[in-house]
Design a protein around this nucleic acid. Sequence first.
DNA 1: CCAACAATGTTTACGATGTCAACATTACAA
DNA 2: TTGTAATGTTGACATCGTAAACATTGTTGG
Lengths: 201, 201
Amino acid sequence: MVNESYHHENLKSELIKNGLKLLDEEGYENFSLRKVAKACGVSHTAPYRHFRNKDDLIIAITLKAEHKFNSSLQEAINSYPNDIKSQIKEMGYTYVKFFVENPEYLRLLFRSDLKKHLNNENCKILKDNVQPFGTFYNTIVRYQSENQSNDAGSITDLNALVLACWGLVHGIAVLISTKDFVYEGDYLELTRKILWSETFL
Amino acid sequence: MVNESYHHENLKSELIKNGLKLLDEEGYENFSLRKVAKACGVSHTAPYRHFRNKDDLIIAITLKAEHKFNSSLQEAINSYPNDIKSQIKEMGYTYVKFFVENPEYLRLLFRSDLKKHLNNENCKILKDNVQPFGTFYNTIVRYQSENQSNDAGSITDLNALVLACWGLVHGIAVLISTKDFVYEGDYLELTRKILWSETFL
DNA sequence: CCAACAATGTTTACGATGTCAACATTACAA
DNA sequence: TTGTAATGTTGACATCGTAAACATTGTTGG
Protein backbone atom coordinates (compact mmCIF):
# COMPACT_ATOMS: atom_id res chain seq x y z
CA MET A 1 0.00 0.00 0.00
CA VAL A 2 1.94 2.97 -1.33
CA ASN A 3 -0.40 5.77 -0.51
CA GLU A 4 -2.34 4.73 2.55
CA SER A 5 -4.65 7.75 2.46
CA TYR A 6 -5.95 7.17 -1.03
CA HIS A 7 -8.57 4.68 -0.05
CA HIS A 8 -10.52 5.96 2.85
CA GLU A 9 -11.85 2.50 3.65
CA ASN A 10 -15.24 3.11 5.24
CA LEU A 11 -15.96 6.44 3.63
CA LYS A 12 -19.64 5.67 3.30
CA SER A 13 -20.39 5.61 7.02
CA GLU A 14 -18.02 8.53 7.51
CA LEU A 15 -20.07 10.57 5.03
CA ILE A 16 -23.26 9.74 6.86
CA LYS A 17 -21.77 10.60 10.23
CA ASN A 18 -20.25 13.90 9.12
CA GLY A 19 -23.36 14.67 7.12
CA LEU A 20 -25.55 14.36 10.18
CA LYS A 21 -23.10 16.51 12.12
CA LEU A 22 -23.07 19.17 9.41
CA LEU A 23 -26.84 19.11 9.33
CA ASP A 24 -26.98 19.67 13.08
CA GLU A 25 -24.44 22.46 13.02
CA GLU A 26 -25.33 24.43 9.92
CA GLY A 27 -28.90 23.50 9.22
CA TYR A 28 -30.65 21.93 6.31
CA GLU A 29 -30.38 24.92 3.98
CA ASN A 30 -26.61 25.16 4.31
CA PHE A 31 -26.00 21.47 3.85
CA SER A 32 -23.90 20.61 0.80
CA LEU A 33 -22.27 17.53 -0.61
CA ARG A 34 -18.99 19.33 -1.08
CA LYS A 35 -18.84 20.38 2.56
CA VAL A 36 -19.46 16.82 3.69
CA ALA A 37 -16.74 15.61 1.34
CA LYS A 38 -14.32 18.19 2.67
CA ALA A 39 -15.19 17.23 6.25
CA CYS A 40 -14.16 13.69 5.35
CA GLY A 41 -10.95 14.96 3.79
CA VAL A 42 -11.88 13.69 0.37
CA SER A 43 -12.44 15.15 -3.09
CA HIS A 44 -15.77 16.73 -3.87
CA THR A 45 -16.98 13.90 -6.11
CA ALA A 46 -15.93 11.02 -3.92
CA PRO A 47 -19.43 10.73 -2.41
CA TYR A 48 -20.67 9.69 -5.83
CA ARG A 49 -18.90 6.34 -5.39
CA HIS A 50 -21.29 5.59 -2.52
CA PHE A 51 -24.43 7.60 -3.22
CA ARG A 52 -26.12 8.29 -6.51
CA ASN A 53 -26.81 11.90 -5.65
CA LYS A 54 -27.35 14.35 -2.84
CA ASP A 55 -30.81 13.08 -1.97
CA ASP A 56 -29.47 9.57 -1.73
CA LEU A 57 -27.03 10.65 0.96
CA ILE A 58 -29.75 12.58 2.74
CA ILE A 59 -31.93 9.50 2.77
CA ALA A 60 -29.13 7.53 4.39
CA ILE A 61 -28.69 10.25 6.98
CA THR A 62 -32.42 10.24 7.55
CA LEU A 63 -32.36 6.55 8.33
CA LYS A 64 -29.70 7.16 10.96
CA ALA A 65 -31.68 10.03 12.46
CA GLU A 66 -34.80 7.92 12.50
CA HIS A 67 -32.96 5.28 14.40
CA LYS A 68 -31.88 7.77 17.05
CA PHE A 69 -35.43 9.05 17.28
CA ASN A 70 -36.85 5.59 17.63
CA SER A 71 -34.43 4.74 20.40
CA SER A 72 -35.70 7.70 22.36
CA LEU A 73 -39.30 6.60 21.94
CA GLN A 74 -38.53 3.02 22.95
CA GLU A 75 -36.69 4.24 26.02
CA ALA A 76 -39.74 6.26 27.05
CA ILE A 77 -41.98 3.23 26.64
CA ASN A 78 -39.67 1.04 28.66
CA SER A 79 -39.76 3.43 31.57
CA TYR A 80 -43.39 2.43 32.27
CA PRO A 81 -43.38 -1.35 31.82
CA ASN A 82 -46.90 -2.10 32.99
CA ASP A 83 -48.84 1.10 32.42
CA ILE A 84 -49.76 1.56 28.79
CA LYS A 85 -51.48 4.89 29.32
CA SER A 86 -48.34 6.29 30.87
CA GLN A 87 -46.32 4.75 28.08
CA ILE A 88 -48.24 6.77 25.55
CA LYS A 89 -48.03 9.98 27.53
CA GLU A 90 -44.32 9.58 28.14
CA MET A 91 -43.72 8.61 24.53
CA GLY A 92 -45.59 11.72 23.40
CA TYR A 93 -43.59 13.91 25.73
CA THR A 94 -40.37 12.38 24.47
CA TYR A 95 -41.54 12.90 20.89
CA VAL A 96 -41.95 16.62 21.50
CA LYS A 97 -38.76 16.93 23.53
CA PHE A 98 -36.72 15.24 20.83
CA PHE A 99 -37.70 17.66 18.10
CA VAL A 100 -37.52 20.70 20.32
CA GLU A 101 -33.94 19.77 21.10
CA ASN A 102 -33.15 18.77 17.50
CA PRO A 103 -35.17 21.10 15.28
CA GLU A 104 -33.28 20.14 12.13
CA TYR A 105 -34.50 16.58 12.43
CA LEU A 106 -37.99 17.75 11.59
CA ARG A 107 -36.73 18.79 8.17
CA LEU A 108 -35.10 15.42 7.77
CA LEU A 109 -37.80 13.05 8.92
CA PHE A 110 -40.77 14.88 7.46
CA ARG A 111 -39.95 15.98 3.93
CA SER A 112 -42.85 15.56 1.56
CA ASP A 113 -40.80 16.41 -1.51
CA LEU A 114 -38.25 13.75 -0.70
CA LYS A 115 -40.78 10.96 -0.78
CA LYS A 116 -41.87 12.03 -4.25
CA HIS A 117 -38.47 11.37 -5.74
CA LEU A 118 -37.97 8.02 -4.08
CA ASN A 119 -37.42 5.08 -6.33
CA ASN A 120 -38.94 1.78 -5.39
CA GLU A 121 -35.91 0.44 -3.57
CA ASN A 122 -35.48 3.49 -1.39
CA CYS A 123 -39.17 3.67 -0.75
CA LYS A 124 -39.16 0.14 0.52
CA ILE A 125 -36.09 0.82 2.62
CA LEU A 126 -37.79 3.79 4.21
CA LYS A 127 -40.94 1.85 4.92
CA ASP A 128 -39.06 -1.03 6.44
CA ASN A 129 -37.01 1.20 8.64
CA VAL A 130 -39.63 3.66 9.68
CA GLN A 131 -39.46 2.32 13.16
CA PRO A 132 -40.68 5.45 14.96
CA PHE A 133 -43.98 5.25 13.15
CA GLY A 134 -44.27 1.56 13.78
CA THR A 135 -43.45 2.12 17.43
CA PHE A 136 -46.08 4.80 17.75
CA TYR A 137 -48.70 2.83 15.90
CA ASN A 138 -48.17 -0.41 17.80
CA THR A 139 -48.38 1.32 21.15
CA ILE A 140 -51.71 2.87 20.29
CA VAL A 141 -52.96 -0.49 19.07
CA ARG A 142 -52.07 -2.09 22.38
CA TYR A 143 -53.75 0.73 24.24
CA GLN A 144 -56.98 0.32 22.35
CA SER A 145 -57.12 -3.44 22.68
CA GLU A 146 -56.59 -3.22 26.44
CA ASN A 147 -58.87 -0.29 26.85
CA GLN A 148 -62.14 -0.80 24.99
CA SER A 149 -63.71 2.51 25.82
CA ASN A 150 -67.45 2.55 25.40
CA ASP A 151 -67.78 6.21 26.18
CA ALA A 152 -70.20 7.78 23.79
CA GLY A 153 -68.36 10.23 21.59
CA SER A 154 -64.87 8.91 22.15
CA ILE A 155 -62.74 7.97 19.16
CA THR A 156 -63.28 4.29 18.40
CA ASP A 157 -61.80 4.12 14.91
CA LEU A 158 -58.24 2.87 15.33
CA ASN A 159 -56.86 4.89 12.46
CA ALA A 160 -58.54 8.02 13.75
CA LEU A 161 -57.10 7.42 17.21
CA VAL A 162 -53.58 6.95 15.85
CA LEU A 163 -53.84 10.02 13.67
CA ALA A 164 -55.16 12.06 16.59
CA CYS A 165 -52.47 11.01 19.06
CA TRP A 166 -49.65 11.19 16.58
CA GLY A 167 -50.91 14.44 15.11
CA LEU A 168 -51.23 16.07 18.51
CA VAL A 169 -47.65 15.45 19.57
CA HIS A 170 -46.28 16.10 16.12
CA GLY A 171 -48.08 19.41 15.83
CA ILE A 172 -46.94 20.51 19.26
CA ALA A 173 -43.37 19.61 18.35
CA VAL A 174 -43.51 21.57 15.11
CA LEU A 175 -45.15 24.66 16.51
CA ILE A 176 -42.66 24.89 19.35
CA SER A 177 -39.55 24.13 17.38
CA THR A 178 -40.43 26.51 14.55
CA LYS A 179 -41.16 29.18 17.15
CA ASP A 180 -44.56 29.75 15.62
CA PHE A 181 -46.18 29.23 18.99
CA VAL A 182 -44.88 32.09 21.08
CA TYR A 183 -44.97 31.64 24.83
CA GLU A 184 -42.96 33.20 27.59
CA GLY A 185 -42.94 30.15 29.86
CA ASP A 186 -41.55 26.64 29.66
CA TYR A 187 -42.76 24.89 26.52
CA LEU A 188 -42.11 21.40 27.76
CA GLU A 189 -43.99 22.06 30.98
CA LEU A 190 -46.95 23.17 28.89
CA THR A 191 -46.64 20.01 26.83
CA ARG A 192 -46.63 17.90 29.97
CA LYS A 193 -49.76 19.68 31.14
CA ILE A 194 -51.52 18.76 27.91
CA LEU A 195 -50.48 15.15 27.74
CA TRP A 196 -51.21 14.39 31.39
CA SER A 197 -54.65 15.98 31.36
CA GLU A 198 -57.72 13.78 31.27
CA THR A 199 -58.73 15.31 27.99
CA PHE A 200 -55.91 13.46 26.31
CA LEU A 201 -56.68 9.75 26.82
CA MET B 1 -41.01 56.60 -23.99
CA VAL B 2 -38.66 54.95 -26.48
CA ASN B 3 -38.56 51.45 -25.12
CA GLU B 4 -41.88 50.81 -23.45
CA SER B 5 -40.90 47.42 -22.09
CA TYR B 6 -37.88 48.64 -20.16
CA HIS B 7 -39.79 49.56 -17.09
CA HIS B 8 -42.03 46.74 -16.07
CA GLU B 9 -44.11 49.04 -13.87
CA ASN B 10 -45.40 46.79 -11.10
CA LEU B 11 -42.69 44.18 -11.22
CA LYS B 12 -42.75 43.72 -7.46
CA SER B 13 -46.23 42.27 -7.26
CA GLU B 14 -45.57 40.33 -10.44
CA LEU B 15 -42.57 38.69 -8.82
CA ILE B 16 -44.63 37.71 -5.81
CA LYS B 17 -47.42 36.33 -7.95
CA ASN B 18 -45.16 34.33 -10.26
CA GLY B 19 -43.06 33.27 -7.29
CA LEU B 20 -46.06 31.76 -5.57
CA LYS B 21 -47.03 30.06 -8.79
CA LEU B 22 -43.55 28.66 -9.28
CA LEU B 23 -43.56 27.44 -5.71
CA ASP B 24 -46.84 25.64 -6.28
CA GLU B 25 -45.74 24.07 -9.53
CA GLU B 26 -42.14 23.08 -8.89
CA GLY B 27 -41.92 22.92 -5.13
CA TYR B 28 -39.81 24.68 -2.61
CA GLU B 29 -36.55 22.94 -3.48
CA ASN B 30 -36.68 23.92 -7.12
CA PHE B 31 -37.57 27.52 -6.47
CA SER B 32 -35.01 30.02 -7.73
CA LEU B 33 -34.82 33.76 -8.11
CA ARG B 34 -33.67 33.45 -11.69
CA LYS B 35 -36.68 31.37 -12.68
CA VAL B 36 -39.03 33.90 -11.16
CA ALA B 37 -37.22 36.68 -13.01
CA LYS B 38 -37.48 34.78 -16.26
CA ALA B 39 -41.17 34.12 -15.66
CA CYS B 40 -41.61 37.88 -15.42
CA GLY B 41 -39.63 38.39 -18.61
CA VAL B 42 -36.93 40.34 -16.86
CA SER B 43 -33.19 40.02 -16.27
CA HIS B 44 -32.01 37.77 -13.49
CA THR B 45 -30.92 40.59 -11.20
CA ALA B 46 -33.98 42.76 -11.61
CA PRO B 47 -35.58 41.31 -8.45
CA TYR B 48 -32.80 42.96 -6.46
CA ARG B 49 -34.39 46.33 -7.14
CA HIS B 50 -37.39 45.21 -5.08
CA PHE B 51 -36.06 42.62 -2.65
CA ARG B 52 -32.77 42.56 -0.82
CA ASN B 53 -32.25 38.86 -1.41
CA LYS B 54 -33.99 35.58 -2.07
CA ASP B 55 -35.31 35.21 1.47
CA ASP B 56 -36.78 38.67 1.25
CA LEU B 57 -38.87 37.64 -1.73
CA ILE B 58 -39.85 34.41 -0.04
CA ILE B 59 -41.04 36.36 2.98
CA ALA B 60 -43.20 38.50 0.73
CA ILE B 61 -44.63 35.39 -0.89
CA THR B 62 -45.21 33.93 2.56
CA LEU B 63 -47.26 36.94 3.57
CA LYS B 64 -49.45 36.45 0.53
CA ALA B 65 -49.87 32.77 1.28
CA GLU B 66 -50.66 33.52 4.89
CA HIS B 67 -53.36 35.87 3.75
CA LYS B 68 -54.95 33.18 1.61
CA PHE B 69 -54.76 30.75 4.51
CA ASN B 70 -56.30 33.21 6.91
CA SER B 71 -59.16 33.91 4.54
CA SER B 72 -59.97 30.21 4.55
CA LEU B 73 -60.03 30.08 8.32
CA GLN B 74 -62.20 33.18 8.61
CA GLU B 75 -64.63 31.75 6.11
CA ALA B 76 -64.92 28.60 8.19
CA ILE B 77 -65.61 30.60 11.31
CA ASN B 78 -68.24 32.69 9.60
CA SER B 79 -70.15 29.61 8.54
CA TYR B 80 -71.19 29.01 12.18
CA PRO B 81 -72.07 32.50 13.42
CA ASN B 82 -73.45 31.57 16.83
CA ASP B 83 -71.84 28.26 17.70
CA ILE B 84 -68.29 28.71 18.86
CA LYS B 85 -67.65 25.01 19.34
CA SER B 86 -68.58 24.33 15.74
CA GLN B 87 -66.49 27.29 14.70
CA ILE B 88 -63.42 25.69 16.18
CA LYS B 89 -64.17 22.28 14.70
CA GLU B 90 -64.83 23.72 11.26
CA MET B 91 -61.76 25.94 11.48
CA GLY B 92 -59.65 22.93 12.38
CA TYR B 93 -61.06 20.93 9.51
CA THR B 94 -60.38 23.81 7.13
CA TYR B 95 -56.86 24.09 8.52
CA VAL B 96 -56.13 20.49 7.65
CA LYS B 97 -57.87 20.66 4.29
CA PHE B 98 -55.93 23.73 3.26
CA PHE B 99 -52.54 22.14 3.76
CA VAL B 100 -53.56 18.81 2.33
CA GLU B 101 -54.56 20.63 -0.83
CA ASN B 102 -51.51 22.93 -0.78
CA PRO B 103 -48.63 20.91 0.66
CA GLU B 104 -45.99 23.42 -0.38
CA TYR B 105 -47.54 26.04 1.85
CA LEU B 106 -46.38 24.08 4.87
CA ARG B 107 -42.80 24.72 3.82
CA LEU B 108 -43.59 28.36 3.42
CA LEU B 109 -45.53 29.15 6.54
CA PHE B 110 -43.56 26.99 8.94
CA ARG B 111 -39.87 27.47 8.31
CA SER B 112 -37.83 27.60 11.49
CA ASP B 113 -34.64 28.58 9.69
CA LEU B 114 -36.31 31.53 8.03
CA LYS B 115 -37.27 33.12 11.32
CA LYS B 116 -33.69 32.92 12.52
CA HIS B 117 -32.43 35.17 9.75
CA LEU B 118 -35.17 37.74 10.07
CA ASN B 119 -34.09 41.25 10.82
CA ASN B 120 -36.18 43.31 13.19
CA GLU B 121 -38.29 44.96 10.52
CA ASN B 122 -39.25 41.73 8.82
CA CYS B 123 -39.86 40.05 12.14
CA LYS B 124 -42.27 42.80 13.08
CA ILE B 125 -43.93 42.58 9.67
CA LEU B 126 -44.42 38.86 10.09
CA LYS B 127 -45.82 39.27 13.57
CA ASP B 128 -48.22 41.94 12.50
CA ASN B 129 -49.46 39.93 9.58
CA VAL B 130 -49.60 36.53 11.16
CA GLN B 131 -53.31 36.64 10.97
CA PRO B 132 -53.92 32.87 10.88
CA PHE B 133 -52.32 32.48 14.26
CA GLY B 134 -54.18 35.43 15.64
CA THR B 135 -57.40 34.05 14.24
CA PHE B 136 -56.79 30.68 15.79
CA TYR B 137 -55.76 32.10 19.13
CA ASN B 138 -58.65 34.50 19.44
CA THR B 139 -61.20 31.86 18.64
CA ILE B 140 -59.88 29.61 21.39
CA VAL B 141 -59.90 32.52 23.80
CA ARG B 142 -63.55 33.18 23.05
CA TYR B 143 -64.35 29.51 23.49
CA GLN B 144 -62.73 29.37 26.89
CA SER B 145 -64.35 32.54 28.17
CA GLU B 146 -67.80 31.32 27.14
CA ASN B 147 -67.18 27.81 28.30
CA GLN B 148 -65.65 27.75 31.76
CA SER B 149 -65.27 24.03 32.07
CA ASN B 150 -64.88 22.85 35.63
CA ASP B 151 -64.38 19.25 34.68
CA ALA B 152 -61.60 17.78 36.74
CA GLY B 153 -58.70 16.98 34.48
CA SER B 154 -59.64 19.14 31.56
CA ILE B 155 -57.15 21.68 30.26
CA THR B 156 -57.71 24.97 32.03
CA ASP B 157 -54.49 26.75 31.14
CA LEU B 158 -55.29 28.94 28.16
CA ASN B 159 -51.88 28.56 26.56
CA ALA B 160 -52.02 24.81 26.97
CA LEU B 161 -55.45 24.70 25.37
CA VAL B 162 -54.33 26.78 22.40
CA LEU B 163 -51.21 24.70 21.92
CA ALA B 164 -53.25 21.49 22.12
CA CYS B 165 -55.91 22.55 19.62
CA TRP B 166 -53.50 24.17 17.25
CA GLY B 167 -51.01 21.35 17.57
CA LEU B 168 -53.63 18.70 16.90
CA VAL B 169 -54.79 20.14 13.61
CA HIS B 170 -51.33 21.16 12.56
CA GLY B 171 -49.91 17.73 13.22
CA ILE B 172 -52.73 16.03 11.35
CA ALA B 173 -52.16 18.37 8.41
CA VAL B 174 -48.44 17.65 8.33
CA LEU B 175 -48.70 13.89 8.68
CA ILE B 176 -51.26 13.64 5.92
CA SER B 177 -49.64 16.05 3.50
CA THR B 178 -46.17 14.55 3.92
CA LYS B 179 -47.69 11.11 3.42
CA ASP B 180 -46.08 9.90 6.63
CA PHE B 181 -49.44 8.70 7.87
CA VAL B 182 -50.41 6.00 5.44
CA TYR B 183 -54.09 5.15 5.19
CA GLU B 184 -56.12 3.60 2.46
CA GLY B 185 -59.31 5.54 3.12
CA ASP B 186 -60.32 9.18 2.98
CA TYR B 187 -57.98 11.30 5.08
CA LEU B 188 -60.35 14.21 5.44
CA GLU B 189 -63.16 11.95 6.58
CA LEU B 190 -60.86 10.62 9.27
CA THR B 191 -60.00 14.16 10.25
CA ARG B 192 -63.69 15.01 10.51
CA LYS B 193 -64.20 12.00 12.74
CA ILE B 194 -61.51 13.21 15.10
CA LEU B 195 -62.58 16.82 15.31
CA TRP B 196 -66.27 16.04 15.76
CA SER B 197 -65.73 13.47 18.49
CA GLU B 198 -66.43 14.42 22.07
CA THR B 199 -62.83 13.75 22.96
CA PHE B 200 -61.88 16.91 21.14
CA LEU B 201 -63.63 19.75 22.98
C1' DC C 1 -38.41 73.16 -21.13
C1' DC C 2 -34.52 71.08 -19.24
C1' DA C 3 -31.12 69.45 -16.27
C1' DA C 4 -30.19 66.78 -12.36
C1' DC C 5 -31.64 62.85 -9.71
C1' DA C 6 -34.00 58.81 -8.08
C1' DA C 7 -36.04 54.57 -9.50
C1' DT C 8 -35.71 50.69 -12.13
C1' DG C 9 -33.63 47.34 -15.28
C1' DT C 10 -29.25 45.16 -17.62
C1' DT C 11 -24.60 43.29 -18.22
C1' DT C 12 -20.88 41.26 -16.41
C1' DA C 13 -18.47 38.80 -13.09
C1' DC C 14 -17.47 35.73 -9.10
C1' DG C 15 -17.81 31.94 -5.92
C1' DA C 16 -20.55 27.96 -4.37
C1' DT C 17 -22.98 24.07 -5.75
C1' DG C 18 -24.67 19.37 -8.01
C1' DT C 19 -23.30 16.34 -11.32
C1' DC C 20 -20.97 14.10 -15.24
C1' DA C 21 -16.90 12.20 -17.84
C1' DA C 22 -12.30 10.83 -18.01
C1' DC C 23 -8.60 9.30 -15.56
C1' DA C 24 -5.68 7.36 -11.46
C1' DT C 25 -5.00 4.25 -7.77
C1' DT C 26 -5.86 0.30 -5.10
C1' DA C 27 -7.83 -4.26 -3.83
C1' DC C 28 -8.85 -8.68 -5.11
C1' DA C 29 -9.76 -12.72 -7.66
C1' DA C 30 -8.58 -15.98 -11.43
C1' DT D 1 0.76 -12.07 -11.69
C1' DT D 2 -2.42 -9.94 -14.23
C1' DG D 3 -6.79 -8.02 -15.28
C1' DT D 4 -10.87 -6.16 -13.48
C1' DA D 5 -13.92 -4.03 -10.18
C1' DA D 6 -13.99 -0.74 -6.46
C1' DT D 7 -12.78 3.58 -5.03
C1' DG D 8 -10.81 8.23 -5.32
C1' DT D 9 -9.28 12.53 -8.20
C1' DT D 10 -9.29 16.18 -11.79
C1' DG D 11 -11.56 18.94 -14.70
C1' DA D 12 -15.51 20.65 -16.76
C1' DC D 13 -20.23 22.49 -17.11
C1' DA D 14 -24.75 24.46 -15.93
C1' DT D 15 -27.34 26.64 -12.33
C1' DC D 16 -27.63 29.51 -8.63
C1' DG D 17 -27.28 33.82 -5.38
C1' DT D 18 -25.36 38.09 -5.34
C1' DA D 19 -22.47 42.25 -5.94
C1' DA D 20 -20.63 46.13 -9.03
C1' DA D 21 -20.88 48.97 -12.83
C1' DC D 22 -23.67 50.70 -16.22
C1' DA D 23 -28.12 52.00 -18.95
C1' DT D 24 -32.72 53.68 -19.23
C1' DT D 25 -36.72 55.93 -17.71
C1' DG D 26 -39.76 58.80 -14.78
C1' DT D 27 -39.90 62.84 -12.00
C1' DT D 28 -39.04 67.22 -10.19
C1' DG D 29 -37.17 71.86 -9.25
C1' DG D 30 -35.08 75.69 -11.75
